[in-house]
């Protein structure tokens, strides 16, 4: 019963309600070129060399639940005070659903609720292993276009089916849409996303504006970052995007 993880981050504020501790899982079945956690793409350990601070670290280890449990329980007082808990992120957490289910059960025993951050490109049976155990999903929805989904290694139909079934099974799903320049931020792409999501009864979306804070990680990994020279979305552009989404959904965004 081993979990393949890279890192545990305390006081995560962008991964759901309240103060959270986030566990990052290694290995992903998508290859989004804007990804801000490239160290979690490969399931194998990743060596990161930060020249600016003269630091080398190897991320990725297989751990027993007992090895990480004390650290996940450390912040329980903060969870209780803030309505937070543990978030499992990655990489793609759902690729390790069997082991993850054991971890989540254990955390529940200690009164800690768990959110899973997923891109959802896995067979629905994986979700079924977790639906009854977790507080909810942060479900990343990248595009409403089948071809574009294919380009990043995903499958729109799978995503749509999973989302639909999660909703009908009563799971708590927060849809999150990364706003990526040249990928899903033009009017047509947004319309496509909105209509797809509206059709299955989604009422609220969280928008995650593109940022380049992960760029240093690519350099540390010796990888090329395709989005290195992309500008941030301007405030005006963001306003415009929000406006478009707001026609369909309640929009959550941190600016």
């Amino acid at each position: 019963m081993l979990l393949n993880i890279s890192n545990i981050q305390h006081f995560s504020t962008g991964d759901g309600e309240g103060i959270r501790t986030t566990v990052f899982f290694k290995g992903c079945n998508l290859r989004c070129p804007w990804c801000h956690n490239p160290e979690n793409l490969s399931a194998a350990p990743s060596v990161m060399r930060y020249k600016a601070i003269d630091k080398t670290e190897t991320l990725g280890k297989k751990v027993e639940i007992e090895d990480i449990l004390p650290e996940l329980l450390e912040d329980k007082d903060f969870f209780l005070q803030s309505g937070g808990g543990v978030t499992l992120s990655g990489g793609e957490v759902m690729l390790q659903a069997d082991d993850v289910a054991v971890l989540v059960k254990k955390l529940n025993e200690y009164g800690i609720s768990v959110l899973i951050d997923t891109a959802g490109c896995v067979p629905y049976k994986e979700f079924e292993k977790l639906n009854s155990l977790i507080q909810g999903y942060l479900f990343d929805f990248k595009t409403g276009n089948a071809q574009n989904y294919k380009e990043i290694g995903g499958d729109l139909e799978t995503v749509m089916q999973n989302l639909t079934r999660l909703i009908s099974d009563g799971a708590n799903v927060q849809v999150r849409i990364p706003l990526i320049p040249d990928f899903n931020t033009d009017e047509g792409s947004i319309l496509e996303i909105c209509e797809r999501l509206k059709a299955i009864g989604i009422g609220e979306v969280e928008l995650l504006p593109f940022h380049r804070l992960g760029s240093a990680k690519y350099e540390a990994l010796g990888l090329d970052y395709q989005y290195k020279n992309y500008e941030l979305l301007s405030e005006d552009k963001l306003d415009e995007i929000i406006k478009q989404y707001s026609k369909y959904f309640k929009v959550i965004i941190e600016r």
Binding site: A52, I53, L208, S215, A216, K228
Partner: peptide
């Protein structure tokens, strides 16, 4: 070396970022 910046819940060591990102 230890200055951590957080944007939208994502954190990084500031000095490891390249200049254009630092300017952002």
């Amino acid at each position: 070396k230890n200055l951590v910046v957080r944007v939208s819940g994502f954190s990084a060591f500031y000095v490891t970022l390249d200049k254009s990102v630092q300017l952002d």
